[in-house]
């Protein structure tokens, strides 16, 4: 596990559901085929209404033009991030786009599990609402050892909730690696 995640913030509102993260019409692509699965990066966050894409101003494209990856490595969300369908394609699409971490006030259960068990991105919970305190394009440093987020642009820093029970799975890489290490898969 990396000790630090460094990158630009892309800020979103509350209740970002999985249809906004990856619209249902794109779920037909293979997740396994190296070339085809790039489409998930290309369409990541394409369902977010443009006015709310990249807050506070909005109307900021997460993916530019024909690219399959994004300039943004950290998503900052509000409450109930990842609600809606169970599609694992959602954290997968964010990972494909180059996102390393999501920092949000709270998560929907299935998105959270998928992010952790699949080893796609690190889902951090914040202690307070911060998607109104960080601007899209701010330079962010997340320290995974100290559970701290520093906004280099504004100089502010925020405490993150410790990853707790799920830390061993994140450290192992995914649920399979975790299960191998703890003997659960060799029974």
């Amino acid at each position: 596990m990396e000790k630090e995640i460094i990158g630009k913030a892309f800020v979103l509102g509350d209740n970002i559901d999985t249809d906004q993260i990856i619209p249902a019409e794109h779920l037909v692509y293979s997740l396994n085929d190296a070339d085809e699965s790039k489409k998930y990066g290309h369409f990541a966050l394409s369902g977010v209404p443009f006015e709310q894409s990249g807050l506070p101003e909005g109307k900021i494209a997460f993916i530019n033009g024909e690219r399959n990856d994004s300039d943004y490595k950290v998503i900052v969300g509000g409450a109930n991030f990842g609600c809606g369908s169970s599609r694992e394609h959602a954290p997968f699409a964010l990972e494909k786009a180059g996102v390393k971490a999501v920092v949000a006030e709270s998560y929907a259960r299935i998105f959270f599990r998928n992010a952790v068990d699949g080893g796609f991105i690190v889902p951090y919970e914040t202690k307070e609402k911060i998607n109104n305190k960080i601007k899209t394009n701010d330079e962010i440093v997340i320290n995974l050892v100290e559970n701290k987020l520093v906004n280099k642009t504004s100089g502010e820093s925020f405490e993150l909730k410790p990853l707790g029970d799920i830390l061993p799975i994140i450290e192992a890489g995914n649920i399979f690696e975790y299960a191998r290490k703890s003997g659960l898969m060799n029974e």
Partner: peptide, 20 residues
């Protein structure tokens, strides 16, 4: 309850899953 593909693959191979 619903789960993602990774959890489902884990169940498919082991018949087990963690839940809070």
């Amino acid at each position: 309850t619903g789960v993602g593909n990774t959890d489902a693959a884990f169940i498919l191979g082991t018949g087990k899953i963690w839940e809070k």
